Structures are given as structure tokens and as C-alpha cells.
Amino acid sequence: MTFNRTQHPILSLHQPYHRYGQPLTGGLSYYLIDFWNDVGDPRTRHLPMMDNGPWTMLSIMASYLVFVRYIGPQLMKDRQAFSLHYLMLFYNILLVLINVYYFAEMLACINYGWDLMDFQFPNKFDVSPKAIRLLYSGYGYFLTKFLDLFDTIFFVLRKKYSQVSTLHLYHHTIVPMLGWLVMRISPTAAPVVLFPICNSVIHAIMYSYYALSTFGPRIQPYLWWKKYLTILQLYQFVLYGLYFTVFLCLQTGYPPIYTSVGYVQPFIFFYMFWQYFKCNYCTNTNQCVV
């Protein structure tokens, strides 16, 4: 497909970018802001949080961590725990519906899995309907990761501090950061869509479990399958690890910051979820490290 980038409503908003691989020069300020515009995808620069580096997104994540670790517990110190029954039921059902939608949408965007075999770095100036659909669907899914943060806030307001574990905080913090990196550098890269496809399925099941659990003790006998949800999560990371190993061997044109940061995450997550599984289902000890 050929087109004039200056005539497109998205690409015409921006000045020409440096091509990835050219020598980049400049001081610290360059690498804090302009670097991301030089190596980033011009099609996403106009979107909220995508311009001038990751600092807006990182500010949100820093505020989240400070609140759930320090400010929230202090505010709740002399207060009774909130119930939040109906709010949590609505929230969990909403997240189930959102994840079911994005599973179907992202699957359609990559030709029902066939595009996962395309390991070439995508064209940053492709404004075909297929590319733009994938771009905006990916951005929408990225924004849902901020909705997930309310899960932790509800734990704090209900004084369920034991649920705010290292694993929980790492998961809710690193996923939006990786999502930002994907959206800024290669929002139409088909291989990265494997994560929202698999993760949306697991989150739909997980939030279904949370929604059912809001009904209290009478429903608990029917929630025996929580253990298998964790097993499913472990299989998810095995799949990611295998797929991205193949991807790392066959990919062409992807920047090192993208491949190096993303590749290690399945192994980190597998280790942390395996420790959680052993702690909760394989031993009787309460001395858990996640």
C-alpha cells in the first residue's frame, strides 16, 4: 500500500521521525523525552499518555503504589473496613464483559491466530483499516489495565492487606508499563497480541470467580476451582516463554529494548506464580514469599 503520510489525519499531526537504527545523539533530556518520539510509532503519539515519554503513565503507577502501600492503609487505620459488596459485584461483572469483548476483538484483529507467525517488525506508517483497527483495539486493551488497579484499592478499603502481596503489586504495575512500551513502539505487531488474547480469557475467568465470591459463604463450596485458575495462569506463562523464544530467534527489525524487556517477563511471572501455587496448594506453611 502506498500513501502520502502528510495527508493522513494521524500521521500529518507529527514531524518526520528518525528511523530506528540511525545514530541517536543528545543528552539526558533527549533520552527522557525525544528518544521515545524518535524510536516510537508516530500513529500513537496523539493518544493520551503516548506523547513525550512514559512519564504520565509512570506517575499514575507511582501514585497507585504510594496509595495502596502507605496512604490507603493510614487512612483506613482507625476506620472500619468497607463492605463494597454491590460495587465489587458490578466491577467484576464489568471486567468479565470487557475481557470477553477484547478476546474476540483481538482474535479477529490478527486473523484468528495466523498473523502470530509474522515476526517482522511492522511498518510504522501503515494506515490500512486492519492496522488502525489493531492499533486502537490494542490501546483500548491497554487502558483496561488501569481498571485492574481498582482491584488493589478495594483490598485496601476492605482492609484485606494480606491480598496486597508482592506478586499482586508486581503484576498490576509491570503490565501497564509493558503495555505502554508496546503501544509506543509497535502497536500493530501481531506477536504481542498473544498476551491480550490469553490474558483476557484468564481474566474473564478470574473476575467471574471474584464476582461469585461476593455472594459470601453460601457460594464457597462451588468455588473449588480457584486452584485450577492458578494452574491455567502457569500454563499461560509457559506458552509465552515458548512462543517468545521462537520469536526471539526469528524476529527481524525489533529494537533491543523491546525484545530484552519483554522476553524475561514470562519467566519472572512463572516463578512468582509457582511460588504462590506452592504456598497455597502444596504446603501448609504460612511463610509465603509472594
Rank of each mutant, 00 (worst) to 15 (best):
M50C: 14
L149V: 01
I197Y: 03
H18V: 14
L97V: 09
G179A: 03
Y243Q: 07
S83C: 13
G27N: 09
Q80I: 05
M206G: 01
I231G: 02
S200K: 09
V127F: 06
Q22D: 14
F155G: 01
Q275C: 12
L97E: 08
M106W: 09
K159E: 05
R79Q: 09
G241S: 13
H18S: 13
F215P: 00
P255W: 04
T144N: 14
Y210C: 08
L84I: 08
V175Y: 10
S213N: 13
F67G: 01
D151C: 07
M61W: 11
V192S: 12
L47N: 04
K227A: 08
M117A: 10
L169V: 07
Y281M: 08
G138S: 06
M88W: 00
P9Q: 08
A189H: 06
Y207S: 01
V156C: 04
I33P: 02
H203P: 07
F269A: 15
F119V: 03
L97K: 02
Y161L: 07
A104N: 14
S12Q: 10
V127R: 04
Y271K: 10
L97T: 08
R69G: 01
G53L: 03
M76R: 06
I10L: 14
Y243D: 07
H203F: 11
Y30C: 04
V182Q: 05
Y17A: 14
N37W: 01
F146M: 07
C109V: 10
G216H: 12
V164K: 00
A62I: 08
F150T: 07
L107Q: 09
A108D: 15
Y141K: 06
K130E: 13
Y243W: 03
L32G: 04
Y235N: 13
P187G: 05
M61F: 12
T166H: 12
Q236M: 13
